[in-house]
Write a protein that binds this DNA or RNA. Structure first.
Lengths: 219, 219
DNA sequence: TAAGGCAGACAGACTAGTCTGTCTGAAGTC
DNA sequence: GACTTCAGACAGACTAGTCTGTCTGCCTTA
């Protein structure tokens, strides 16, 4: 591996663990086995390294999350495959991302202080949400999902579930917890796929309702 | 407001926005309208301030999230109230937490580099999960929830959903998105509360299943 | 006068980035 | 093949500025 690639790879790991702002150039060059001169020969600034790491992370993310997904497969199968890929091939990839999902780390760390850096990250989030929504709408078309299902709501549920699972995994590093989180999401989307039953349920639950729809104790 | 309280309050806001490591003492004392001497007269170190801010944040969190929750209410009502409180009274509280959930910020930022600082945060996460699980089990006892519901799985789903909603809200600052995320969670728990229907669904969906349970295109 | 609270100069360790010089290996010439 | 030239990768001392934390002394209040 060339020096530049080594720097990107090691920086990616350190950024994933410590964040961008709290990883020093000195730390990076030490781990990468190079020097200030070696570093600044390849990168004009730390920020340029950030963009290189982000691009590489996105490449790996796509590679992992969309692994063995065929266009011919049903939309629902694709969503489930994305969820398991995200869990097993991306989040558990401690070689590239030992500190957990690097996009969440960047986002939390930089969104209020360095918005220009995370703009790209947020665009990635939005793009992924759009993809999920598109798959859900395709699922409605193919009949796998009920046609009164709200794709926006379900997309939000899936996406926040994935974000939350990553955060929690970063916290306790427990693969069991992670498995459970993602399994719950899969269960959720499969539950929705049973059309007759779900139609009946959803009719009685408008969005935004709070207390008055379940009077079990009759107060 | 006394000088010490002002420092804690302003530090809380800055930590919420920039994180702990990336907020300087100079920035804090400037916003708080004091000086190094004024600061170190009240706090032995920046770390001592961290603990003071954390304690204050936890106090506010409890106050907001458990606001107007009565012991007499049904477990399911309590869960829904916690979810709406979390959204409307805690996450939208830009006076105290302009940068979003401070516990997630701390957790993401510090879990790999300063584990001793976030230990308390993670204990708080666990305590809240335990509370949710207890409420779910109570709900099963009262008959609001089906008795074959897996409290661990549902707890995980609710908790990761809340985490994810906070992260996403921190990203796009859209109250609409936040409302949608939390509404989806409420919808989810209400969906589970319909016992007869859910029993039927859940029988056919074992945890951890992936592709082979929905052969819609028969390959 | 005594004491606590606080302002701000300061120390020393850190940061990102610069600059000078060295070393290696490829290309060109005899 | 032997020698020269030179581009560019790289090492590491350096600058300028930031960080946390210390210390002295002033100012207010009792």
């Amino acid at each position: 591996m060339k020096n530049k690639e080594t720097i990107i790879h090691e920086a990616q790991k350190l950024f994933s663990l410590n964040g961008y702002l709290n990883t020093g150039i000195n730390e990076i060059i030490e781990v990468a086995g190079t020097s200030k001169g070696g570093f600044y020969n390849h990168f004009a600034s730390k920020e340029e390294l950030f963009h290189a790491v982000l691009a590489e992370s996105q490449r790996i993310w796509r590679e992992k999350v969309f692994d063995s997904i065929k266009d011919s497969e049903s939309p629902l199968k694709t969503i489930v495959k994305i969820l398991t890929n995200y869990r097993d091939k991306y989040l558990k990839d401690s070689e590239n991302f030992p500190g957990g999902c690097i996009f969440i780390t960047f986002s939390i760390e930089l969104d209020d202080t360095h918005p220009h850096l995370v703009k790209e990250v947020h665009q990635g989030f939005q793009g992924f949400k759009d993809l999920l929504k598109r798959l859900l709408m395709e699922g409605i078309e193919t009949g796998e999902l009920p046609d009164d299902l709200n794709p926006t709501t379900v997309t939000e549920m899936l996406f926040t579930g994935m974000l939350g699972a990553s955060v929690l995994f970063g916290v306790d590093k427990s693969q069991t917890t992670l498995d459970c989180s993602i399994d719950s999401l899969i269960e959720y989307i499969l539950m929705l796929s049973n059309r007759k039953v779900i139609n009946h349920i959803r009719q009685s639950i408008p969005v935004g309702i709070q207390e008055d729809c379940f009077d079990t104790d009759g107060d």
